[in-house]
């Protein structure tokens, strides 16, 4: 079916990429929690999971392995709720065996991402969050190339506090500059752990690296999210942390980040 250039993204108000040069810093976690917090604030949100070799979002939102359906305008995303306020599309849905490895070189990944970006019938969305794999390679270039036909608001960069991680994120910042992608801000994840037994705060992965990096590169620092076993557990079980622990420091951090992000999107 032929579509205009904007096609399925025509009714998507804002597109935000979640990036990090480093793996395992919490891109998918931050994507999921931001989506839940934005929904909490009454927004319609979509998540596109382009991590082909390690899709984590389906589990984090506990949608299982539904069959993907098609309508006249393309693939119907999977909705997490009957109100259809949170839509999701992931490569995870296309795998017959969840343990199967997607052993693909770049060109195949590029082709699939092209399909993914243009063929999902998102309908009306306030924000579409795009969760990416670590690095600065095929997937990232493919997403940007395909989204450029539409409008990309910018990227949220996720890092953990230690230098080994901020070092990789510095490279991702260079990637954003070279590709003309606006940096909406930096989130520091896994920032400090408060012992549930004695309330002592341990900086397991050091502290302050995200804020330093934001200063160094002249980016907005969106906030830091502490290490919280309840957050890991909620994600493991696919539960909505923002509803389960609304009084936690972690929730207030996530919610403040989502508000800052929303403000910057709307004043743009």
């Amino acid at each position: 079916m032929e579509q205009s250039r904007d096609g399925n993204l025509a009714q998507v108000r804002h597109v935000v990429l979640v990036l990090s040069g480093k793996g395992g810093v919490g891109k998918s976690t931050i994507t999921t929690e931001l989506a839940l917090a934005l929904r909490h604030a009454g927004k319609k949100v979509g998540i596109l999971d382009v991590d082909l070799c390690g899709p984590s979002i389906p589990r984090m939102l506990s949608v299982g392995r539904p069959e993907v359906h098609q309508c006249d305008s393309g693939w119907v995303p999977v909705y997490t709720d009957p109100q259809k306020s949170l839509a999701l599309m992931s490569i995870g849905f296309l795998m017959e065996d969840p343990d199967e490895a997607v052993v693909w070189r770049g060109p195949k990944k590029t082709a699939l991402i092209g399909q993914f970006v243009s063929d999902v019938a998102w309908g009306e969305l306030d924000v579409l969050l795009v969760d990416t794999p670590p690095g600065t390679s095929d997937e990232h270039l493919a997403v940007l190339e395909n989204l450029k036909k539409h409008r990309v608001d910018g990227a949220v960069l996720v890092t953990t506090p230690q230098a080994v991680s901020t070092g990789d994120v510095r490279r991702e910042i260079t990637f954003c500059k070279r590709t003309g992608l606006q940096i909406l801000g930096i989130v520091e994840n896994m920032s400090g752990f408060v012992c549930p037994h004695c309330s002592e705060c341990s900086n397991i992965f050091s502290k302050g690296g995200g804020e330093e990096l934001a200063e160094l590169t002249g980016s907005v620092f969106l906030g830091s999210v502490p290490l919280d076993p309840r957050l890991s557990a909620s994600l493991e079980e696919g539960k909505d942390f923002t509803q389960l622990f609304p009084d936690s420091a972690t929730f207030s951090a996530i919610s403040s980040i989502s508000q800052t992000l929303l403000k910057s999107l709307e004043t743009d």
Binding site: G21, R105, G106, P107, T110, T136, S137, D138, H140, L141, G167, R170, R171, E172, I173, T174, F175, R178, T179
Partner: peptide
């Protein structure tokens, strides 16, 4: 340290 290696598969 800011240098990004923005390479597709074959170069890697």
């Amino acid at each position: 340290p800011d240098d990004a290696v923005i390479w597709r598969g074959p170069k890697k």
